[in-house]
């Protein structure tokens, strides 16, 4: 009993506890399909034990027809209803897949906040290109406003997921992927990398702080005032393997920082940024 109660707390960070429209609709789909599927598997769960037990060898009160092996009526019920269910689910799937395409902007009267995310070993860099600040392992967003995250990886492939806000999308070096999220209310949520990438993987989590709009502006001002400068040392540290105990705030983020990280994997990149992976002795 105690175990069961303690275990229920496990769903605090789950999409079941959705805090935004995307995760909310994804949860909705999840629940609809689960209910449909319960009706699909129900007959198997009921029929299998009943028929097996009724037709047991020791029960003399049943018919035994060793040569009976076909019935058009049964064939109809075996093939047609499942096909119809799959056709029905296909419409659901097609609509939801388009509606919840992670690349699709969230419709809103509020302006969209632009964020760039870079997965690193074993931390996340978030760049706010319009606000010219950056953070490590701290994603602050204004509640009620859509957020567009353009992502890449500064290392191996990873996957960014904030279960309470939206499902995941991979990040890959030299390429960009996109994700749209939104938090309905102020609160703190957990984001993580779900794709194994070495020793620090389990600790590669970050806090998502959804703030009221005014608080968000204050937070930006706070970062500008108190953050560390983004210098060459800071840049190089990003690409060292490390688990950060505390989030890092950078008071400035140079223009084109995201592009510069993307260019690390392209041979035409500026010479100063030549990637050690590209030219190996």
């Amino acid at each position: 009993m105690f175990l069961a109660l303690a275990g229920c707390g496990a769903f605090h960070d789950s999409f079941f506890n959705a805090a935004g429209p995307i995760a909310g609709q994804e949860r909705h789909l999840f629940i609809i399909v689960s209910i449909v599927m319960l009706f699909v598997i129900g007959p198997v769960l009921i029929l299998t034990p009943i028929i097996a037990w009724h037709y047991r060898l020791s029960n003399t009160k049943h018919a035994y027809r060793p040569h009976w092996s076909f019935s058009w009526i049964l064939e109809f019920f075996i093939w047609v209803p499942p096909t119809l269910i799959v056709i029905g689910l296909s419409f659901l799937l097609w609509n939801y897949t388009h509606k919840l395409d992670p690349y699709r902007p969230i419709e809103s009267s509020q302006p969209t906040l632009e964020v760039r995310a870079v997965s690193l070993d074993w931390k996340w860099l978030f760049i706010y290109p319009r606000q010219h600040v950056a953070t490590v392992n701290m994603l602050a967003i204004p509640a009620g406003r859509p957020v567009h995250i353009e992502m890449t990886s500064g290392t191996v492939m990873q996957s960014l997921m904030i279960p309470q806000l939206a499902g995941q999308i991979y990040t890959m070096g030299g390429m960009t992927t996109q994700l749209h999220i939104q938090a309905d209310h102020p609160g703190t949520y957990t984001g993580q990398n779900t794709q194994y990438n070495g020793e620090g993987f389990a600790k590669q989590k970050f806090a998502v702080n959804a703030l009221a709009p005014q608080q968000f502006d204050e937070w930006i001002a706070h970062v500008r005032a108190t953050g560390k400068p983004f210098d060459a040392k800071a840049y190089h540290h990003l690409f060292e393997k490390s688990v950060e105990k505390q989030p890092i705030l950078f008071s400035s983020a140079p223009d084109g920082l995201f592009q510069r990280i993307l260019d690390r994997y392209h041979p035409t990149a500026r010479a100063s940024d030549t990637n050690p992976e590209v030219i190996r002795p």
Partner: peptide, 19 residues
């Protein structure tokens, strides 16, 4: 099979993939 159909739904897969 039930969890398989759930995973076949891309928006549901986004949530539970890699978990």
């Amino acid at each position: 099979g039930m969890s398989g159909i759930l995973l076949a739904m891309p928006p549901a897969d986004y949530l539970v993939h890699n978990t």
